[in-house]
Simulated assay, not measured.
Amino acid sequence: MLLLRQPQTPPDPAVPRVVMIGNFDGFHRGHQAVAQAALNVADSSNGVVWLLTFDPHPRAFFSPTGAHNALASPAVEARLAAAIGLAGIYTMNFDKALSSQTPQAFIADNIVARMQADCVVVGHDFRFGQGRAGSAETLREHGGFRVVEVDAFADEGGQTVSSTRIRSLLSKGHLAEANGILGHRYFVIGTVEHGEKRGRELGYPTANIALDAGSALAHGIYATTVKVGETVYPSVASYGRRPTFGDKPPLLEVHLFDYSGDLYGQQLEVAFHSYLRPELKFDGVDALIAQMDKDSEMARAALASAQPLSQLDQALGLVHANVLAA
């Protein structure tokens, strides 16, 4: 999959190009419905699908002091897009010049000239151009290409699926519900960095990964799996400030059950399967180790019956391979 950023130019399409436009943070089930509509069009025309997206998020540009906690980093977004079946992602710089473009100019400069779209697929609430004046109808009137507008996606309870709702669920430790709305397990990608080596002293060596400061993930203990290269390992993870040893910046610490080796500097994919308990402060090391033993048992039990949540979850390959083979 090609990852391009302005001012790069996408290659001339040798096949019809279907372009889906927007910020698809987390690629939840609503986003997947838009992507599937785009893939259906591409399949019918032997074409390919590109995502045209923006950085920073327009909301962050217009309200730079507000909270704009992304569900997915660019690396996670690219991993999801590839698993869904997109051919490429083109990221435009959202700045004053772009925000000031009229809808007609945006269509001419970016959708027609830059992306050379044969079809554009957008969600029901898509707006673009100066003052958010552009809509799907504007695309139809001024584009000269096919336009597909996808209806709002609601879950089984009739609630609209949104990234905001998922962030709220994650912040409260409601991981199972968040994963159900995502349609895949929430996961992060990060590089292992050196820490205080305290986990090793406690008998639980960990791979330490710093998450974005605005991460919505609740502090606590999780049953997780970790992808190292092409191998997936069962694991237990702690995310938080480590209050037993003083109040520190939030850190993700992951203990891989069936792994021995040096992970420093490696990029890992950590998938969150179950929220086990909130972060606690213990009176001493012995009490902490006893709880870590219990946490490990709970994590192993939670992972023993893990199965992919969807075809996308299976394509991501973040479920322990030994479980799937059982």
Rank of each mutant, 00 (worst) to 15 (best):
Q6W: 15
V19S: 03
Q32G: 00
A35L: 05
A37Q: 05
A42E: 04
V49C: 07
L51H: 04
L52I: 08
P58G: 04
L71F: 08
E77Y: 00
L86C: 06
M92V: 14
N93L: 13
K96D: 15
S99I: 01
S100G: 14
A105P: 01
I111G: 05
Q116A: 15
F128H: 04
V148F: 01
F153G: 02
S163V: 11
T164G: 15
R165H: 13
L170D: 03
A176R: 15
V192E: 05
E193Y: 00
G195H: 05
G195Q: 06
K197E: 13
R198Q: 12
P205G: 08
P205R: 04
A207E: 03
T231A: 12
Y233W: 10
Y233H: 12
S235Y: 07
A237V: 10
L256I: 01
F257T: 11
F257P: 07
D262H: 10
L268P: 12
L268Q: 12
H273N: 09
L276F: 08
R277C: 11
E279V: 09
F282A: 07
M292I: 15
A302G: 09
A302M: 10
L303C: 03
P308R: 11
S310F: 02
L316T: 04
L316Y: 01
V319D: 12
H320S: 09
L324E: 10
